[in-house]
Design a protein around this nucleic acid. Structure first.
Lengths: 315, 315
DNA sequence: CGATCTTACGGGATTCGTAAACATA
DNA sequence: TATGTTTACGAATCCCGTAAGATCG
């Protein structure tokens, strides 16, 4: 029924509102940082575009017409939405708002991530954080499906759509009950461990996969397979067997009656990768966390990580 | 905290949405009736203004960043509000929407206005109509206070802020019970009427004011003063007295047992004016009614106005 | 090599500010 | 007459389209 959408501009709307408030071309032009004739032209253009007189004006008086009064509400809403959009962008730029989703191995999630997130949240309290503490395969899947921004996993998931870069290395430790004969050896070799009942992780765990490939021809005395490292700890502490676990999981085994010992066997080292989608930029919030993660990999030394005592709960 | 409001334009937002939908600069540029480089520049400007990359793009793939996805919602809201504003203007221009408030004498409101409004509403069914059927003084007050767009009143309210132009004239009629001696006279003169008990309207009514000034030196035999013409009718029909009423109110007296007779006395004529505010444009809806009102003043002849029988109720 | 986005650049339209004209209380 | 809006006009700016360059599949 009506013609093509009139070509109004935001500057015209801003000029309109300024005039509606000031009721004076001169004052409104000054507030708009425009010469008065230029300002007058904006109003004129707007009226022309709408096909509607918006102000009754004489040299002495400026006043909105009934349609002008109604249009003022509309214009205000338009500019309010624009402001909301711009401040939304501004919030995201300042990381006052946003969302980041990280997928990572349970060991990293429990032992290393909290301190990272503590600092991150202190810096950007408005950002929503989602943590998926799952095994390597699900980690990579989450990234592939776009449900996690990036992941820390023990597989080199370098495909067409995924990019993986080395993040850290994780050496293995022997864990056995205090007083176990293995601890008496000057050097523990694979064949020494193979002589004792061994508590394994499930085959889909990265710990197990690394162990299997590193010890390949060697036949282990598998006592059982469990899913949780905490269960491994319990079994070993009860004297049922021994196990080998990565350094990053040592916190599970800081228990009375347990002893751990670093194993410097060639090739027995878990590699953890930082995985993200190729050709796909991270959200600003994710970018910030990504950089912090990259800058603070877990300590690889033997001493336990410093634990922040002043920290508050994250959620 | 953040710098000056970024200078984004509506064209940039439209280009952004086109690209977000099409995911191709070439297609989006074509839909926007722009050359591809010009379109590319718009996107580039928008990203520059926001300080934010909105699309991940290679020569083969265009995809919004996380921030781009979020900004799409915002941009859509901005343009939706703009569309609402523009279609609101369009509705008002087409009189599909709007509001008009008319103040006018009760006699005009009952006898003449309905037919006008019937046609008006048939033409512009979306316009809200408000009718204030009050005496002349309140009519003018409503216009002065901006609560009515214009008025039909019996006072020439030509002031600094109000403009009054003649609308119609209204001659007076004698009304008396059938068989009354006055009806036997060949010509009824003022002194003849003054001999009989007279039913007056209240002093603040225009009918009374016109009568008083036209008959000035003459002493009437005032029987009573009432506020409503219907009451005058009842009193006269009951034989309590006679009265004189303007032609526009004759419909009140089309009752069995009553006779009316036109009086052609010099100076006895009610003038009705069309009153509006000076220097203040009417709303489009009001303008349309104003023009119809002006074009169809009440019939001044003696015959009753044609009554539309096919009309439906107005509200 | 073909399709697609970006950069470079000249021409044209838009918009600005100054100055003069116009209108109203 | 003084204040304030509109009109006139030259100059600077912005924006568009064509053409060449760069990049990825």
């Amino acid at each position: 029924m009506n013609g093509p959408r009139p070509n109004v501009s935001l500057r015209q709307l801003q000029a309109f509102l300024a005039l509606a408030e000031q009721r004076s071309f001169t004052r409104a032009a000054a507030l708009s940082h425009l010469s008065q004739p230029a300002f007058s032209a904006l109003i004129s253009q707007l009226e022309g575009a709408l096909g509607l007189r918006l102000f009754d004006r004489s040299t002495r008086h400026v006043e909105p017409t009934p349609e002008g009064i109604e249009f003022e509400r509309s214009a205000r809403r338009v500019l309010a939405e624009l402001d909301a959009a711009l401040s939304g962008v501004s919030d995201q730029l300042a990381r006052r708002r946003g969302r980041v989703s990280i997928a990572l191995l349970p060991s990293l999630a429990a032992g290393w991530l909290p301190e990272i997130l503590h600092d991150y949240r202190a810096a950007y309290p408005g950002v929503e954080i989602e943590v998926a503490d799952v095994l390597s395969e699900p980690c990579v899947d989450l990234v592939r499906r776009g449900q996690a921004d990036f992941a820390l996993a023990a597989v080199r998931a370098d495909t067409e759509e995924l990019q993986a870069e080395p993040f850290c290395r994780d050496d293995f430790h022997l864990v056995c009950p205090a007083g176990h004969p293995l601890l008496a050896l000057a050097e523990v070799r694979p064949r020494d461990v193979a002589a004792w009942p061994f508590v394994h992780m499930a085959r889909n765990s990265s710990v197990r996969q690394y162990l299997d490939s590193a010890l390949h021809p060697l036949k282990m005395k598998t006592l059982m397979e469990v899913d949780q490292l905490a269960t491994v700890m319990g079994m070993v502490r009860a004297g049922l067997g021994v196990s080998m676990i990565p350094a990053l999981t040592l916190f599970h085994f800081a228990q009375p009656g347990l002893v751990t010992r670093r194993l410097a066997w060639a090739g027995l080292e878990r590699h953890i990768y930082l995985v993200r989608r190729r050709e796909r930029s991270l959200s600003l919030a994710a970018q910030s966390l990504y950089e912090r993660v990259k800058a603070q990999p877990p300590a690889t030394s033997m001493r336990p990580r410093r634990v922040r005592r002043t920290g508050r709960a994250l959620s």
